[in-house]
Write a protein that binds this DNA or RNA. Sequence first.
DNA 1: TATGAATGAGACTTCATTCAT
DNA 2: TATGAATGAAGTCTCATTCAT
Lengths: 206, 206, 206, 206
Amino acid sequence: MNERSFTNPLYALSGSALMKDKRQKIIDAAETLIAESGFQGLSMHKLAKEAGVAAGTIYRYFSDKEDLLQQVRLEVAQRNAEAIQRDVDESMPLKERFRKMWLNIFDLSVSNIDNLKNRAQYDSLPCVRSHETKEIERKMFSKVDQLFTEGRETGVFKPLDNPVLAALSLEVSVTLARKQSLGYYQLDQDAIEAAIEASWDAIITH
Amino acid sequence: MNERSFTNPLYALSGSALMKDKRQKIIDAAETLIAESGFQGLSMHKLAKEAGVAAGTIYRYFSDKEDLLQQVRLEVAQRNAEAIQRDVDESMPLKERFRKMWLNIFDLSVSNIDNLKNRAQYDSLPCVRSHETKEIERKMFSKVDQLFTEGRETGVFKPLDNPVLAALSLEVSVTLARKQSLGYYQLDQDAIEAAIEASWDAIITH
Amino acid sequence: MNERSFTNPLYALSGSALMKDKRQKIIDAAETLIAESGFQGLSMHKLAKEAGVAAGTIYRYFSDKEDLLQQVRLEVAQRNAEAIQRDVDESMPLKERFRKMWLNIFDLSVSNIDNLKNRAQYDSLPCVRSHETKEIERKMFSKVDQLFTEGRETGVFKPLDNPVLAALSLEVSVTLARKQSLGYYQLDQDAIEAAIEASWDAIITH
Amino acid sequence: MNERSFTNPLYALSGSALMKDKRQKIIDAAETLIAESGFQGLSMHKLAKEAGVAAGTIYRYFSDKEDLLQQVRLEVAQRNAEAIQRDVDESMPLKERFRKMWLNIFDLSVSNIDNLKNRAQYDSLPCVRSHETKEIERKMFSKVDQLFTEGRETGVFKPLDNPVLAALSLEVSVTLARKQSLGYYQLDQDAIEAAIEASWDAIITH
DNA sequence: TATGAATGAGACTTCATTCAT
DNA sequence: TATGAATGAAGTCTCATTCAT
């Protein structure tokens, strides 16, 4: 968000702020519609209506539909990156950090999938691996990277690359969340804790 | 079915066999196009062209596009189910069965993802969950189920539900394969064996 | 109908009789479907199915759809012609003949309209005025013609052409029947008799 | 509406007026095509071409084909309603009003049928009977209703319901016009006057 | 900068008709 | 003679995008 528009109302009507408002309104509307009706249900007309702008206006901020979707994904990814590492601090013990991020991912996945917002994440993210995407990923996984690097160097974790460690442990939470949302089961608190413990077992040395 | 087509290859073009051929040609063409351009890129006209039939012909075999897609998914799922459990026998030791299926899934995922054929699997399978889908899943996971049940009852595995055990161990191979296909890393034989070992660690009691 | 097929079962399977059966089956099926779903709802495939023949077979008896419809109309028209003049005899008094035919037309129109079978009559008959159509009309109106001619020559009816007299009197019953079927009103026996009387008034000299 | 378009003809092409023009152009084109090729011959592509707009444009003004047809019928019905009661005034004697409307209907029917434009009226009007249709009918028949009511109450007409009186007298003109257009006969002025007289005889008390 | 009417390619689907068997 | 699979033109409608205002 442009913070200036909150502290000084004058900025709210200025060119760039207004523009930013419209751009944001369009992106927000896109997310809303995608959450409601999935990715294929997004038409530029519905989007314009939902965002309260004219159809042509969208093309002042995005070169075409693909560009718009790209930027929606970017925004979703950024929000996800923040959510995943929320309340995680380097000063916390290794296991606690692991547990916190595991739960963050699990919660995020459940809500995303429930809202169909997962589509913004799953359908799309794999398709692109642009510079920006990689930037996001680095940010997204900075604390994750640190966790795995630290754990491996102290001999707590197995000597595997970080992405492999992630796939073996943290990303299991995504799989479990998805399955739960599809109705395969309903994990209670104990089951979740057991799953976290098992994920931990996967990567520590025994 | 016209049995003659099995005994005498000359009959291969006779009535019912021809029909089966055409249906299959359409499904194959659909898989090809989906692999090339994803799910949304499949138009009935392109499909007709690729399959070498008239547009209207498709509707002799499938009531509409959704029906066609359903049947494509079914076929893909069935092929996957077979591939996953290939060369796995109950008489084999628990660990060996685990390793074999892990590798089957990994290999399948790599090739699927490389062809984008995963879309037929990932985009769609979750959408339905019909009776047929469940039937497929049961078949798909019969040997998997047996593995986990046996392991848990003998105290080798943790006391978790089968789907959870699967997510913690076997399905990790999908995540790893996808990441590899996206270019995050290239797993050599040692790394794969280590990943299998780590997956095993996730579900056994320590 | 081919009477031979009733008296000698051998004829039932003979070429021409069989052919006539199929042709009739198709026409009957067409009438059934038109009655059910109107004229536009008639597709050659549905027709083939209803008639119990293959789609291609229809084209052995009718050159194309238009030809088929033409012949359906012809058949309906013939049946109508018979119905209109049923139980009318030259020996009956003028007024009685008039009343009988008026009622025949009214009853026919009601049932036709109720079955949507009117479409076979109203949508189509005006479109063509072929030789056969005229032939049908002459037959259809032979007793009507006689009625009007006789009435005019005896000075009972106004000196107007037969088709004009028909429009002024007998055909009013069609208009009334149609309106009733559309729900404008429901004519009881008295109202119908009054309408007949009024129709009579239209054409007699006063 | 943009009021300027009423005060200054230069604005005739400005926004809202243009829109109105386009909608009207489409409706006019529809009437033209229906007149030429009947109701079934109307395809949205042909219509777009005839109207000089893109196919998609039609859907800005009409939700779908059925909606378009409905509005065409409405317009035709309204025009007919006006034509039927043109130059008819309550101050005129009963018979004169009757004669005028009879002729109005006859003339209208002849021209409609000659253009096949009757199809807009006959094929369609009976199908709906919506609120709007009834509104049209009331308007269409206000002077007709008044005529019949007045005539019945003054004892000039038979004690029959208005729709029945209409069918017996005024609507005969439609039947006669149709038959004439189909080439059954050609009514000269005397014959028409005689027909009017006969129609009058149908409903008056003797 | 913003609008939104207009565009027209292309989506899915139907159906009268043909023709090899 | 009968079949019915196959055809492909034509149908209705959607939607990303443009452009005059």
